[in-house]
Design a protein around this nucleic acid. Structure first.
Lengths: 341, 341
DNA sequence: ACGATTTAGTAAATCGGTTTACAAAACCTC
DNA sequence: GAGGTTTTGTAAACCGATTTACTAAATCGT
């Protein structure tokens, strides 16, 4: 690899016998040139294989044509799909994407955010999965040009985009109620998180609507992880809870849960009914196929990007909005009438 | 959002009463300063909340501290996990990652690569999933500082990193042979791809080793997609193939296959045995749990990064190496002795 | 044919750092 | 205390683009 001095605008200008300014303007469409000049420049560019240096460009324009995407963990298919959608949408606008994986650690969220604050990117799509003590919100508000997606950062006054968690919970509750379930176990993420609050609330509303006071909901609070799914399953078995149906508030929780149930010989839906949430994995091939609420993940990603790019950020007042994307229930075979124990 | 003039090195220097050079050098550890000066500079930085402008930095150093990651599709859990591993490894070295999703389109691979060629990133981890007519290889060789991962680009003379596909195929064949299968259907990706060639070869070797000439392998050539899995399943049914076991060369193919088999009432493993490849999805929860070859995806990602960063690229001769990572078979319940039809 | 406007083009400043070349001060050595 | 070396520091060039301010030439209306 020799010391490849990259060809610069100056080289092109010299080759074409014009000034750098002329070439630059021409390239940026700010100058109409007579055909002869135009041809000359174009052929010089081709001959020299000129590619503009993006860093110089960004430095002088004070704009990066890059957006940042902060996400807990891309290995998780839900976030992976979200990233894919954002990336695709960004690319179609000529934007590059820089990825910041926080690996579920709050300090990394803060670190990234403050590094980004000044100059790294033109805007930020922010996906957290942790409760915030206010630090994060403060930083987000200071940074500007941030869109919060999927999970709330309560004190942040920026555009927010979630799926309709409350209705998701409601759909679960109604489906369960239709099968006659009155006692349901809700297994969800950290208490402070808006997604879990709303899913629970929706569940509650639906169940009470159908069964009134006879509806009894137990609730395990933990994390949206496989490990917590396992833990909850073990606890459910140990405590011998009277619940006849379980609402697992994420694919991961459902996976952990099913693992343990299988190992313990608990049959779904004969012994207990289960409904999941997210539906990005191949739940339809599970044994039995798992009924679940489907999140519109790709739409979430696309919309996040357009929210980021099409918002008028010039206005002085902070822009706090909240947009909800509809969810749907995908009925499969993991719900049956309550087992008579 | 007011016109936030970001504080620059100059501001810090003025505040601290020294020159910009001094601050710059100090920050880069190229200058030991007396405590008083040091304190002064540090407190100025803190007071002004100085953050270096990365673009200026990159421009003047001619180095980006960023690597590029070209990948077909992050929504695919296999690639998602790979990206996650690379990202994590990169981050621990202080490197940022810019993501380029090619969305399975060869022209985008070329476009990205030539954009990158000059100045965008310090190095590139390249994952393709298409056959190459030579254009890609030429571009890769010209670019330099590229590592090819997971799938080969035959004419590229750069370090390459794959999993041990041949042994993967062999493990499948041996497992199948142990159950008495002699007639096997191999469903794999595009013929030109090294991964599918080697998996097939391994399968063949194992089967012939155990059953000699009685081993009969049919082969469907397509793509590593769910859609092709479905197609292959339909074809298998239509053609009424005598195969008693199927080797599906990716998670996706297996998923499509199982979908159709379920719909057609074909039972795994009673009617036909199935083995998958990749094992990144929750195959263990399928009905029945799917036996599969497990790729060391995370290791693949980590190793890719160290290959990229620890290779001595200075040498004139192109560096062509090939490293294989071991795979293992995860035995579950999708293989049984051949059904007597 | 004259001044007014538009077009085609240039030189130089700027973005915010790093780095080279050099100067002054401090510290040794004999 | 003269000469050499190290420490501490500065001014200025440079990376490769964009952009401002300005000029020369061409075009226009009347």
């Amino acid at each position: 690899m020799a010391e490849r001095r990259t060809t610069s605008l100056k080289d092109v200008a010299k080759e074409a016998g014009v000034s750098v300014t002329t070439v630059s303007r021409f390239l940026n469409g700010k100058l109409d040139l007579p055909d002869t000049t135009k041809k000359r420049i174009e052929s010089s560019i081709a001959r020299l294989k000129y590619e503009p240096n993006p860093h110089a460009r960004r430095l002088s324009r004070g704009q990066t044509d890059t957006i940042g995407l902060v996400v807990p963990d891309i290995a998780n298919p839900f976030f992976g799909t979200l990233v894919a959608a954002v990336e695709e949408a960004a690319d179609s606008r000529g934007l590059a994407v820089t990825l910041y994986a926080t690996l579920n650690r709050a300090d990394r969220e803060l670190a990234y955010l403050s590094r980004i604050e000044r100059n790294h990117v033109d805007g930020l799509v922010f996906v957290t999965n942790h409760p915030d003590n206010g630090d994060l919100a403060a930083l987000i508000n200071r940074t500007g040009k941030v869109v919060v997606v999927d999970e709330d950062v309560p004190l942040a006054t920026v555009p927010k985009l979630f799926c309709d968690n409350e209705n998701g919970g409601f759909l679960v509750g109604r489906h369960l109620a239709e099968f006659g379930h009155q006692r349901v176990l809700y297994i969800g993420g950290p208490e402070e998180m808006i997604s879990t609050q709303r899913r629970y609330k929706g569940l509650e509303r639906a169940l009470q609507q159908d069964h009134g006071d006879r509806a009894v909901i137990d609730r395990y609070v933990g994390a949206y992880t496989i490990e917590f799914g396992r833990e909850a399953a073990r606890r459910f078995v140990d405590e011998n809870l009277p619940a006849t149906a379980i609402f697992a508030a994420s694919d991961e929780i459902a996976i952990g849960l099913i693992e343990v149930f299988r190992a313990s010989g608990i049959s779904i839906p004969d012994d207990v009914s289960v409904i999941g949430f997210d539906d990005v994995g191949p739940l339809h091939l599970f044994g039995p196929p798992l009924t679940a609420i489907r999140q519109p993940v790709r739409t979430l990603g696309q919309r996040a990007l357009s929210l980021l790019m099409d918002t008028d950020w010039q206005r002085d007042a902070p822009i706090a909005s909240e947009e909800l994307l509809p969810v749907e229930i995908v009925v499969r075979d993991s719900v049956a009438p309550p087992a008579k124990k």
